[in-house]
Design a protein around this nucleic acid. Structure first.
Lengths: 222, 222
DNA sequence: TCTTCGCGTAAGGATGCCGTCAACATTCGG
DNA sequence: CCGAATGTTGACGGCATCCTTACGCGAAGA
């Protein structure tokens, strides 16, 4: 399910967007100012951000810069200002589309689809993955054999499994799962990797699929 | 250089767009109707298509479908029709953005940049490199044949392989890998070059790809 | 021929990282 | 309000990687 973060300070607009997006089966989170938008995005990792430029605490373009510092998540800007310079600034800062109020909700949804279609090459239905004697289905978040994984375990596994054979640096894992302030806390990873191996590997002491690359990171090998 | 195909039947508009795009160092080709647009696109393989919906010979949405049948090239639609249903149809057919006339040329250019920026992020993959009988993939940090390299080995190899044929001075390697305070410690390099050759070269005593240039530095020759 | 210098190779000790166990804090559902 | 599941933190032994030292070799020059 596509996760959308809606950033707007007008309760009326927030309500309208949330209802319409939820009706289309999007998973929606909201933020009312720039600061909480940035923290929300870092924690929740939305697939798309809808951003109103008229925020109370900071300039909308700065919010775009803040997001683009670490993520390529599509950004659709909403704005009451129709001036072309505003559009140019927002688009060049890294926004993917710019919609001026008032707008048709149907057009807005079509633009959401267009933008996330272009971004969503990864969304192409991941096939279930075999790890030892277990089958992991990332789409349905299920593991064969009465096994249950915790949310954090899923987030780690998701990153590793969707890049088969590729080395994922500790830095990347930590910043994706815990946020960029936790880049040094490598013992988190050690902790959860042992958990995952205990649950998934046939012989947790000699892992075959969840491999450590000393000094660098971890790797899933099929 | 980015290649843009402009499809429009009004000579005035064609002229304006071509001049403005050329001034921004885009390479421009033009087409005046849907049929020639499709053949032009097939022959010329543009990086982006600017498409006016009001063509004389066929419906604009059909042109989009025709393009989307074989290419993912970004499409920016121009249209005089501001109706939201037109936008929805075009976007859902596969267009990436929709601009209504009249429009600011600067805004239009910003949207061109935004769309082609998003399309460009999907590429940028380094191709694996052959060394003797081994294949080295810098992206995934893998070597064919159950071989594993240490972090320092990777950092050295990364510098050498991304400059094929070029001489890399000892000074440069040392300062990149160990820092500028270690510029004199050339024995570090000897140590690690031996290791790399042992792991990668067919005959480590007579290297073919990881070459020493006495007194200067090292070189990777494909 | 002898000397000097830079390079390649080998082996051993030091360091830092990793895996693991265990305790504590926090969250969540009943 | 309580208990269980999850997340966080600390401690410690083992081991891979890195650094260091030592020595042999060959090329260039005196």
């Amino acid at each position: 399910m596509t996760r959308i973060l809606v950033v707007d300070d007008e309760p009326q607009m927030l309500r309208t967007l949330r209802i319409n997006l939820a009706a289309r089966r999007y998973e929606v989170a909201v933020a009312a100012d720039g600061a909480s938008a940035l923290t929300q995005a870092a924690e929740w990792h939305p697939d798309l951000v809808v951003l109103d430029l008229g925020l109370p605490d900071m300039d909308g373009v700065d919010v775009i810069h803040g997001l683009r510092g670490w993520t390529q998540t599509p950004i659709v800007v909403l704005s009451g200002r129709a001036g072309s310079q505003d559009k140019i600034d927002a688009l060049d800062a890294g926004a993917d589309d710019y919609v001026t109020k008032p707008f048709s909700i149907e057009e807005f949804l079509a633009r959401i689809r267009a933008v996330s279609r272009r971004a969503g090459t990864q969304e192409a239905e991941l096939t279930p993955v075999q790890i030892g004697e277990h089958t992991v289905d990332l789409n349905r978040k299920t593991v064969s054999g009465e096994l249950r994984l915790t949310p954090t375990e899923w987030r780690i596994l998701e990153i590793l499994l969707s890049n088969p054979g590729k080395l994922i640096t500790q830095r990347h894992l930590l910043s994706e799962v815990w946020g960029s302030n936790y880049v040094k806390e490598t013992h988190y990873l050690r902790q959860y990797m042992t958990q995952l191996r205990k649950k998934l590997e046939r012989d947790p002491a000699h892992p075959v699929h969840l491999i450590t690359e000393p000094g660098m990171g971890y790797r899933y090998t099929p």
